[in-house]
Amino acid sequence: MEILAFGVQADEKPLIEKAFAGHHEVRCLDVFLTEDTAPIAAGYEIVSTSVNANLNHRVLQTLAAGGTQLIAQRSTGFNNIDLDVAERLGLTVARVSYYSPYSVAEFAWTLAMAVNRRIVRASNRTRDFDFRLDGLMGRDMRGRTAGVLGTGKIGEAFARIANGFGMRLLGWDVAENPACLDLGMTYVDKERLFAESDVISLHVPLLPATQHIIDSAALAVMKDDVILVNSSRGGLVDTDALVRELRAGRFAGVGLDVYEAEAGLFFLDKSLEVVEDDTLARLVTFPNVVVTSHQAYYTVDAVGQIIDTTVQNVLNFTAKRRDENVLVPRS
């Protein structure tokens, strides 16, 4: 059986081909699964997708009509898939429920420290042989407060690093994590976390209840010199509201690895095009903002785990086995 994999990055292709060797043939495409590209999947029983695929009802209908039976998504998040439609069409959907939490947690801290110590500005200056320190002053993390919104595996890893810095820990989640409590974390309501934290990092999934969890009201409560980091999902932050606060001169720094309108932009080369997204264009002009292209997960360790789990999801499907990775079971 040949599997069609959409949205495969150049670094991923040899890893995917090696992982599937001896099991199934795999055809890797660098294009993302969209309404325009979905017809390519005709005749493929199994399709693998990336997190930036758009699996709306039209895409799912095209896949089902072309004979697809399994969608194996190479990510933990699945807010890009209309699961109700997939179920009605008889499509099985599987995801990667777990991969290295350290990849994302470490990158979140990379963003936090990059904006704190003005690394991008300093690097750009030294390339021009400008070695002044004006405007590059940061601050120690020790003794300050880290607010962790979402204390699952990634949030816990982020908190462990913060604990290593010697920071006070505040957390918010629907359930307390005993490991975070052992680190000395205090669980509080969102408003207190927003008001008292010097660094706030987002590690909750994107659900209807968390859409724009960082809205204008939440931003207003935060300290003027807070560092805000989002390495989870772009839709957690009301970007227009964030831009308004940045224009008012607030926040010591903002690190964003995700953006709520990233589909059709991230993972692609748009350097020779006019980007029509005015919000993103404005966002990247702020000197205290660092935007990266959804790369927090992108380590050889995490990607390897994602691919291995995807292969196992395919093998489970062909063997008619089911585990916790299956979001929509076969009908």
Rank of each mutant, 00 (worst) to 15 (best):
E12K: 06
P14T: 07
E17C: 09
F20C: 09
V26I: 15
L29A: 08
D30A: 11
L33R: 03
A64Q: 08
G66Q: 03
G67Y: 03
F78N: 05
A86M: 04
A86I: 03
R88E: 15
L89V: 03
V93K: 06
A94I: 00
R95K: 14
S97F: 05
S103F: 00
A105W: 10
F107S: 11
A108N: 12
T110H: 09
L111M: 05
V115M: 10
R118I: 08
R127C: 08
F129H: 13
F131R: 00
G138F: 06
R142I: 01
R144D: 06
T145E: 03
T151K: 05
K153F: 14
G155H: 05
L169G: 02
D173C: 04
A175C: 10
A179D: 15
T186S: 14
Y187M: 01
R192Q: 14
A195M: 02
A195T: 01
E196H: 06
I200K: 02
S201P: 03
P205W: 09
A209E: 15
A217Y: 13
N230C: 12
G235Q: 08
D238I: 05
D238L: 08
L242V: 11
L242A: 00
V243C: 07
E245T: 02
A248V: 09
R250L: 00
A252F: 14
A252S: 14
G253V: 05
D269W: 00
K270P: 04
S271G: 15
S271Y: 07
D278V: 14
T279C: 13
V290A: 13
A296K: 08
Y297R: 02
T299G: 01
V300R: 14
V300E: 15
D301Y: 03
N313G: 11
V314W: 08
N316M: 04
T318H: 10
E324W: 07
E324H: 13
N325C: 03
